[in-house]
Amino acid sequence: MVDKSEKFSWLVRIGYFSRAILYSVLGLIALTNAGQISEGTDGIFKAIEDFPLGSLVLWLMVVGLLAYALFRFCSTFFDIENHGSDTIGWGKRLGHAGSAIGHLALAYSAFAFANGSGGGSGGGAQEAAAGVLSIEFGGLVIGILGIAFFLAAFNQAKKAYTASFMNRIAHGAPSQTKLLGRIGYSARTIVFVVIGWSLMKAGFGSSGASQVKTLGDAVASLAGNGTLFTLTAVGLLIFGIFSLVLARYRIIPDLGKDGRVPSFRA
């Protein structure tokens, strides 16, 4: 009989697989189709929709992205990866919260396309931001979310430099896993900084919700930056490949009483 922790582990692995599809398609679109990447996140899901069995893939991504968001929320609130409750630990956990919210938005976008209502993913994020901004202290909430993305970006850069992600990858992973991860996390650092800055401008500045960027929008905003855009696109494609490795070899902490201590590699 499969226990709850094992079911959770399989859901998270589907999440990593969904993330692999997402970033691989994003990188490919950015490198090969300037018109489609200008559509932001919508362009990613439109491309997936055109795959053979594209609708089935989109529904798989809905489940996977929701599962990945749940995993990151569990890391934030229950500290299942044992980051601790000091300043550094909470910095990492808040970064995971930003990642969780971002993947919830992506899951909603995937659902819109899978359900046939399609389109408007960037607009949906902007509408949500506008709704938050309309309430008391809404700007503070959006601004704090922007800070969470900056913390996530810092964490991505740290992973790229230290390769600490290898601690949570099981033996047997391909020999190039470390290199793939370093390149991929470097590219994600750039994207998270763009998203975080857009949220901070919306929350603490006067740019308004229309400037809030999702994953695809952030990449599209780099299109006029030549080499930086190309390197980021290649890095995101590599991050997709790296995520596929994680779907198989990532060590997923248990949800049981010992779940707070991850099983590190020797």
Rank of each mutant, 00 (worst) to 15 (best):
L28N: 00
K7E: 07
K92D: 08
T32A: 08
L145E: 09
G216V: 02
L60A: 14
G256L: 08
F239I: 07
I147N: 00
S109F: 06
G119L: 11
R260I: 08
A125F: 12
K4G: 14
M166G: 00
R250N: 11
A105C: 07
L180K: 06
H83R: 09
G84T: 13
A202N: 00
I80S: 01
L222M: 04
G43L: 04
R168M: 02
G181K: 08
G143R: 00
D79S: 13
G89R: 03
Y108L: 13
I135G: 14
A20V: 12
L236Q: 03
S24E: 09
S206T: 13
L22W: 03
L104Y: 01
S75N: 09
V141M: 05
G95R: 07
G224M: 08
T230V: 15
S55M: 07
K159T: 13
I183A: 10
Y108V: 15
G235D: 13
G138S: 09
T232M: 05
R93H: 06
S38N: 12
A47Q: 06
L222F: 02
G84Y: 13
G216A: 03
G95M: 05
S38Y: 02
L145I: 14
P174M: 12
L56C: 07
K4N: 12
S221F: 03
A218K: 10
F242S: 00
F229L: 06
G146V: 11
I147W: 04
G143W: 01
I251R: 14
K7H: 07
L28Q: 00
F78Q: 14
A202D: 01
H171N: 14
L215N: 02
L228R: 01
F192G: 01
A100F: 03
A163H: 04
Q176L: 08
G43N: 10
F78R: 15
G84W: 10
F73N: 06
Y185S: 06
F229R: 03
